[in-house]
Structure formats: C-alpha cells, structure tokens
Computed example of a mutant assay.
Amino acid sequence: MSIERLNNDMEKIQEEITSTQEALKIIQSLNLNSKDIISMVDVKTYDELSKDFKLIDYYLSFKKRESALEHIENITLIRNDTYEDYVNSFSLDDEDKPLAKEEYEVDKEQQILVETIDLIKVILRILAGDNVSIWEEDLIHIRRGIKEPIKLIDMKDIAFKNRYCGFMGGMSNESYNEIIAKAIHQNASLEDLHKLKEIPDGYGWAEDQINEGLVWAEIDLNAPDDILLDGFKNWLVRARAHHNTINGNVTHHSSVKNNVKPAHMKKWHSMRVLAYLDIKIFSSFINAPLTLNQYADALYFDEPDIDTTEKVRKTLIPLVNEILSGYYLNNLMKKITSEIRLS
C-alpha cells in the first residue's frame, strides 16, 4: 500500500469518526423518548416499501439489522466493563501491563466510537424514515454471506482452502503436511506412505466456526442421477456421523428451516418485522426500552379485534428470534445462492 493511499484511507477514517461524533451530538440533543421513536417509524410506509420485497431484499434487511443489534450489544458490554474487571483480567506473569485508569477510559470511548461508526448509518436512516430501502452499503452482506452448500472444486481450490484452514486450525500439523506433499510429488518412501495412512481421518477439514461443516467428497459423474441422489442421502447421514465422531458433537443445523416459501415472506411483511426491528434498534440505542404493549400499539394499531400485546409476545418476538438465530440467515443465503446458480 502506498503512503498516499494510506493517508487517504486515514483521512476517510477520520472523516467517519468526526461525522459519527457530530451525529451523536445531534441525536443526544434531541432528547428523544419512546413516543418519539414510535412516531419516527411510519408502519404504513414500511408496508408499502417492502410489499414487493424478494428473498434477497429480506436477507439484506435482516443482516443490516442483525449487525446493528450486535453493535449495540457490544457497546453495552464495553460500557458495563469496569476498570476493576479490566485490571483483574491481568495476571502477574503477563508481559503486558494494564493501562492507567485515565488511559483505559479513553480507550473504552474509542472502542465505543468504532462500534458506533457503522451503527450510526442505520440510526440516521431510521431517524430520516428511509431505512426500509436497500442501500449500496448494505450489499456488503451479500459479499460476506455467499457460501454455496455444494460446488465444483479442483486441486487449486483444495490447496487454497487447506492453506486457509491451516491458519484456522484445520491443517496445522507440519509433519502431516510434509508427508502429504511428498505423496503428491510422488517422492514418498514406503515409510512415508505408511505414515500417510496413519494421518487421522478428517485432517484438513476446517475447524473454525464459520467453515466447520465443510468436508471434501468424491462424486462419480458417470453414475445415473437417481443413483447419485439416493447415494448422496445415504452418504450425508454417514458423513455427518463421521464428522461428529472426529470433531466432537458439532451441530450441523440440518433441522433448521431452509425451505423458505412466499408464505414466509408474506408473514414477515404482515407481522411488520422490519418496523419492529427498527423500533427496537433505535430504542436500544438511546436506552429507552419499550414495553410489549407499546410495540403492539405501534405495530398493530389497525387490528382492534385481537390482543395485539399477545401477538407481539407469542408470535412476533419468537419469529424475530428465529430469523436472527444466525443459522437461519446462513441457510437463507444458501437458498438464494442455489437459486441464482439454477437460474
């Protein structure tokens, strides 16, 4: 990276920090309360703007809001951390020593500011009433989320993946790597080949949380489709069991709902999930939590004949918790990717 580019990047970061600080001051000066938050989120506008949302639109909308809630949670954790807890996290044997209290407080505020930089964009869009739309910066969640459940690979992909896994703990045994390299280059001795067979099953599989379920498979493309499909179902059961045997009880989330249909999107729309999340995000940000009754009045004011508070408690909140469970959105991205590949 050139010095000029580095300076430009630093200037951009400083501009973001400055604009974030200015935005925070403006929001704080407004002295907003729960009623103000509810009035900012025009539910009918949310209904209109999201009525034609496709699966990809909902995915981006959920990921944007999931990220905002994570930033808020991180800010809360940082704020609640005390200097005493920080000091107690060090031991006498540590080479690094704790910061002085004044330095610790400055560092703490900097951490909060870093968390706020991306969050403030969502907050300002909610404040302006245009957080429903998909913005260019939201597309980063697509680039981060693409991970095909099945894809064609060759040796260069395997080499790159295994090297990547090496950094993440999947291929970190140098002696095993040396034996494998000898076998590939066909200069392995008989002793090396014996050692090759002794390498534990599953060596090279990813061990990090993001890719822990990735394994390699061999497929005979000359076999008829019906045999391949039946064989894959049987193989999948054995592969998961074998994976668990080697790596411990890994949850493969095969039972997580992944067959999202138009009915699911209609439910997300009718339950006004996006409006609920934006109210939740803003109220959490300014530390003005709403009651279930307030959520109900804000979201379902046009449903006078039902107990809307119970609708929030029994239907809306469990639905949102399922959507933001992590693996639900991962499977949603896999479905989107598979549909793109098939089209």
Rank of each mutant, 00 (worst) to 15 (best):
I279T: 07
R79M: 11
D138W: 00
K261C: 12
M10P: 02
V312P: 00
G248K: 04
D201N: 10
T245R: 08
T337Q: 02
M168H: 07
I123V: 14
D307C: 07
E218Y: 11
N287D: 15
E303M: 11
K261P: 04
I112V: 14
I246E: 01
M271W: 02
T251W: 11
V41A: 07
D230C: 11
K257P: 01
K156L: 09
V122E: 04
L127R: 12
D297C: 10
A183D: 10
I3R: 12
E218M: 12
E137F: 13
R65V: 04
Y276N: 06
V114H: 03
L30T: 11
E73K: 14
K314W: 09
W216P: 01
I78V: 08
V122F: 03
H253T: 08
K266P: 01
D201I: 06
S61R: 05
S254E: 12
A100W: 07
L290G: 01
I246W: 08
I3N: 14
S61V: 07
G204L: 00
T20K: 06
D36Y: 04
A275D: 09
I120L: 13
H269T: 06
V237M: 11
L92T: 14
E178Q: 11
L290H: 02
I184Q: 12
H243Q: 03
R144F: 05
N249W: 03
A23Q: 09
F285Y: 06
N162L: 08
K267A: 15
L292I: 10
N259G: 07
S50D: 05
S338N: 03
F232P: 00
T18P: 03
Y83N: 02
E198V: 09
I281R: 01
P200G: 04
M271E: 04
F160A: 07
G231D: 12
V320I: 15
F282D: 03
E303R: 10
R341D: 04
Y104P: 01
R240P: 00
E218G: 07
K257Q: 08
E191Q: 08
L214T: 04
A68N: 03
A296Q: 04
K54C: 13
S34F: 04
S283W: 01
E103Q: 15
S61A: 13
I153T: 08
S39W: 08
K197W: 08
N258S: 11
K97E: 15
T45N: 14
L299V: 06
S50P: 03
I27V: 15
F232E: 05
T82H: 08
L69N: 08
I199Y: 04
R272P: 05
E22Y: 05
V260H: 00
N8W: 05
K334H: 01
A188N: 07
F167M: 12
R238K: 14
